[in-house]
Design a binder for these strands. Structure first.
Length: 646
RNA sequence: GCCCAUGUAGCUCAGUCGGUAGAGCACUUCCUUGGUAAGGAAGAGGUCACGGGUUCGAAUCCCGUCGUGGGCUCCA
């Protein structure tokens, strides 16, 4: 073995002694800036010794990868602090997540918010102590023995799941943890961190397992970057749709119906404008709208499979004319009862079956905006984002197999129309593929997955694969957007379904006169209108595009003397079809402007004696932009230029 | 459903050590008639989420239920 190895840094190669570590090779980078490195493409610790020729790339503290290292090391620091403060607490896993990290513990009693300052103080103390963080490779069996002795049952379980012969352990002072690494070389690198919240979390995410106690935190390269991040979170909270919805008078929630919004008049306008927009698109894209029942006999849900797969999420009632005893005899007793629909699909099969269908009828596109009710578990409810009562821009396409790709492509085009018109730049697409439990053959799945993929490619849509996350009856395209706090929500979806046509025995007569089975495509562009409105409010901070604004124009009178003129303008605009109101209250202009700003009214019209004298108006737009008095007619022309999509 | 937190006026929130409630905004009335983000005064408004318990006495302490918030799980 040669006593030297060749390292390449920044494209320059040189020889260094065999066994030099990464830190030495990159010593031109000052102290704390360097947190780890990539050696031949693999991310490693700075103490890693170079045993062979290598390309070495530094990972700096403020790069995305460097932040991950900092956060991961901070998670370990937290685990160390927790075990010192609360002996007997077991550690489990502590990964880096977007914007921070968490660590799940199995403590004797769950952590509360009050524990966080104590833990944070301990962490600062340990960070200051400048403890070396060292990587040790140990034999798998030794590691199992060691962690068993330590009483770390969860770690043992993790190691047992690792196929390698050796595992890496990181020592930090007299504390140690199983970890893949890499980590910063010493705790003094960890200077800017904050523990943010506690939460329960199931071991391995399975609710049949023990409930662990999770602590969330975040860490940055500098205190300034941390403060900046905390400030952004504060700002995002101001855009919370629950807060804005109340302030703007759009909707309320009341314990009398948990998880179900009460749309106030202004919120109802948004809801109706959105559905009207979809109706315009439907006319263009060849959809037919229907209205089907809200309540069905449970027979339907048995046929559709919802009884087996979705019953715990359904509102079910006994047959009002039946014996009351049927209520008490358990699930089977409900057999003759009724349930509120959680989805439109089974009902739409009856629309399909209303006539004998020919291949010439396909594709048949059936749309419906009816309200749906789902008995979501109480802990999951979240403003408009997760509700029990909702409407979707729902539709089911019944088509032949050879029509799938075109239909999916057409719907993706609609998705782009809609999200483009509403200014969502960050829309993410995923293709959810065949799950373990599935109907149909693997060939059939691969073929339909390819059709979905092709349809996306045709629309130049980049997508990720979401492996094994398809519905048991078919693959699906999932479309996501994020809320103000960067929580990602699925909005639109396009799903292939071979199952329901089978269950409901749907057929069409092909050109040879033979009955064939159609395919069903479930699709929603906005998804749940509730969720979509929630995301839209947060996305825009409540400043909605003109066509969606519940109140489009507010005429502010300066004094009693111009009351009539203000009312006249509002009436005129209403006749022109705008949502206009006059504010003739006995208040100062500044007060009225403030209220109109808070209500996010896009056009504020100010009229005083000057304007009344020559029948003009002064205009103020949201956020203070003003223009001088203009003739009334010019205002109407201006409003006419506001775009209305589709 | 599970873990943690939380629930006081329509809204946002004070309320100390257990001694039966306060502010601002909103609302009503009056004054003020104004020029681009809060003019002034007065009034009205609460079974302190609900049900138990401890106590001479509970908004306050304990238990339960319901709701809400942050997560887990599920999903649009």
């Amino acid at each position: 073995m040669s006593s030297e190895v060749t390292v390449t840094v920044n494209g320059e190669s040189r020889a260094v002694p065999h066994g030099s570590n990464v830190r030495e090779v990159l010593k031109h980078i000052p102290g704390r800036d360097l947190v780890a490195a990539r050696v031949n493409g693999k991310v490693v610790d700075l103490t890693r010794k170079l045993e062979q020729d290598a390309v070495v790339e530094p990972i700096l503290i403020d790069s995305p990868e460097g932040l991950d290292v900092i956060r991961h090391s901070t998670a370990h620091l937290m685990a160390m602090a927790v075990q010192q403060l609360y002996p007997g607490t077991q550690v489990t896993i502590g990964p880096v997540i977007e914007d921070g990290f968490f660590y799940d513990f199995a403590p004797k009693t769950p952590f509360t918010l009050e524990d966080l300052p104590k833990i944070e103080a301990k962490m600062r103390e340990l960070a200051k102590a400048d403890l070396k963080i060292e990587r040790v490779e140990v034999a798998r069996e030794d590691a199992i023995r060691q962690f068993t002795e330590m009483g770390e049952g969860y770690k043992v379980e993790i190691i047992q799941g690792i196929p390698d012969d050796t595992v890496s352990i990181y020592r930090e002072g007299d504390w140690m943890d199983l970890c893949r690494g890499p980590h910063v070389p010493s705790t003094r690198y960890l200077k800017a961190f904050k523990l943010t919240s506690v939460a329960g979390a199931y071991w391995r995410g399975d609710e049949h397992n023990a409930m662990l106690s999770r602590i969330y935190g975040t860490a940055f390269a500098t205190k300034e970057a941390l403060d900046e991040h905390l400030k952004l979170i504060e700002l995002a909270r101001l855009r919370d749709h629950r807060k804005l919805g109340r302030e703007m008078g759009l909707y309320i929630f009341d314990p009398i119906s948990p998880g179900s919004p009460f749309y106030l008049p202004k919120g109802t306008i948004i809801l109706n404008e959105l559905t009207d927009y979809m109706r315009r698109l439907y006319r263009r894209y060849g959809y037919d709208e229907v209205v089907t029942p809200q309540v069905f006999k449970n027979e339907l849900w048995h046929t559709s499979g919802h009884w087996e797969n979705f019953r715990e999420n359904m509102f079910i009632s006994p047959d009002p004319e039946g014996e009351m005893t049927s209520v008490d005899t358990g699930p089977e007793g409900w057999h003759h009862g009724y349930a509120l629909k959680p989805m439109n699909c089974p009902g739409h099969t009856f629309v399909y079956r209303a006539e004998k269908r020919s291949y010439r009828d396909l594709p048949l596109r059936i749309a419906e905006f009816s309200r749906l009710h789902r008995a979501e578990r109480s802990g999951t409810l979240h403003g408009l984002m997760r509700v029990r009562s909702m409407a979707q821009d729902d539709a089911h396409i019944f088509c032949r197999e050879d029509q799938i790709e075109d239909e999916v492509a057409m719907n993706l085009q609609m998705v782009r129309d809609v999200y483009g018109a509403l200014g969502f730049e960050r829309v993410e697409f995923k293709l959810a593929t065949m799950p373990e439990q599935h109907l149909g053959t693997e060939e059939q799945w691969r073929m339909t997955e390819a059709q979905l993929g092709n349809a996306m490619s045709r629309n130049e849509i980049a997508y990720e694969i979401n492996p094994k996350e398809g519905a048991f009856y078919g693959p699906k395209i999932e479309i996501y957007v994020s809320d103000a706090l960067k929580r990602r929500w699925q909005v639109a979806t396009i799903q292939l379904d071979y199952n329901n046509p089978e269950r409901f025995d749907l057929t069409y007569i092909n050109s040879a006169g033979v009955a064939e089975r159609p395919v069903m495509i479930h699709r929603a562009i906005l998804g749940s209108l509730e969720r979509f409105i929630g995301v839209l409010i947060e996305h825009t901070g409540g400043v909605l595009p003109f066509w969606l604004a519940p109140e489009q124009v507010r005429v502010l009178s300066l004094s009693e003397k111009v009351e009539d003129y203000a009312k006249e303008i509002a009436e005129l605009l209403k006749r022109e079809g705008y949502r206009a109101h006059s504010d003739i209250r006995n208040e100062k202009l500044g007060f009225k402007v403030r209220e109109a700003e808070l209500a996010k009214v896009p056009y504020m019209i100010v009229v005083g004696e000057r304007e009344a004298a020559d029948r003009s108006v002064s205009l103020r737009l949201l956020r203070g932009e003003k223009s001088n008095a203009m003739p009334l007619a010019n205002l109407v022309e201006l409003l006419k230029k506001e775009p209305i999509p589709a």
